[in-house]
């Protein structure tokens, strides 16, 4: 927790992907902090507690100086006398916290997140890994089923119109890439990643209508959702040549 907001970081058990989630202080009804605070929490326990709250409930998260637990108070909005309190004890993660250095990416595309989710799902049916290539003209996601020889490919061409936003939920321009593509393209880049982790990242589509894919040769793939209250980033380690 810092004066800007709350930053969460987590890693999967196989250490293939790292998730970073930033929630700005503006997404909270009130946000008070005396000093920066770093907590290691079991995400399952935190999720279990937060799921006890209904959509309209008020959740208050509290941790004191040298605290060993995060206290979550859940209050019913129209019945403020009705409060339940839950403690989530801290755990020791040791050195599992990582510093993510900001690197200049070679290419960035932004596509509709629902389309991205469909792409990840479809290619995962074919193969455990896929190749992502971004060239000047667009981007290509390819998966090959080595058993049957079937190959699946999704191509995104650079949008001709700068703001090819959809007018309604149903009016989705096929394969359109939003204009940020121009600004972030420096050189043709390709990466191979596990489809399983791409599917995982793509499931966060409800957060934002758009998702960005950023790449740099031999660096983790970055799948990023920007939204008003913050940003969600998935870093996925590539499969590299032996």
């Amino acid at each position: 927790c810092s004066k800007e907001g709350i930053m969460l970081q987590g890693m999967d058990e196989f250490h293939i992907s790292l998730v970073e989630f930033f929630l700005s202080k503006r997404s909270f009804e009130s946000y008070a902090l005396c000093h920066d605070l770093c907590m290691s929490l079991p995400i399952d326990s935190l999720a279990t507690v937060l799921k006890k709250a209904n959509d309209d409930d008020v959740c208050t998260l509290k941790a004191g100086h040298k605290a060993k637990v995060l206290t979550v108070a859940i209050e019913t909005r129209d019945q403020p006398w009705l409060v339940s309190k839950h403690d989530v004890p801290f755990i020791d993660l040791g050195s599992e916290y990582l510093v993510i250095s900001r690197i200049p990416y070679d290419a960035k595309i932004t596509v509709w997140s629902t389309r991205f989710a469909r792409l990840a799902h479809e290619l995962h049916q074919l193969s455990g890994s896929l190749d992502i290539q971004i060239i000047h003209e667009g981007a290509r996601f390819t998966a090959l089923d080595e058993g049957s020889g079937k190959k699946g490919c999704f191509i995104f061409r650079r949008a001709k119109v700068v703001d090819e936003y959809r007018d309604s939920e149903d009016d989705e321009p096929a394969g359109a890439i939003i204009h940020e593509f121009h600004r972030y393209f420096h050189k043709a880049t390709s990466l191979r990643v596990s489809t399983k982790y791409l599917v995982h990242a793509s499931k966060r589509a409800p957060l934002s209508s758009k998702v960005s894919v950023l790449m740099k040769e031999d660096q983790p793939l970055l799948v990023q959702y920007d939204f008003y209250e913050g940003v969600l980033k998935f870093y996925i380690a590539p499969r590299i040549a032996d």
Binding site: I16, Y97, L98, Q219, Y235, I236, A237, R239, I240
Partner: peptide
């Protein structure tokens, strides 16, 4: 052939 790299190898521990 390709092998899966570990995400920890790209980022540093503080």
């Amino acid at each position: 052939t390709r092998s899966q790299s570990s995400i920890s190898s790209y980022f540093q521990a503080p």
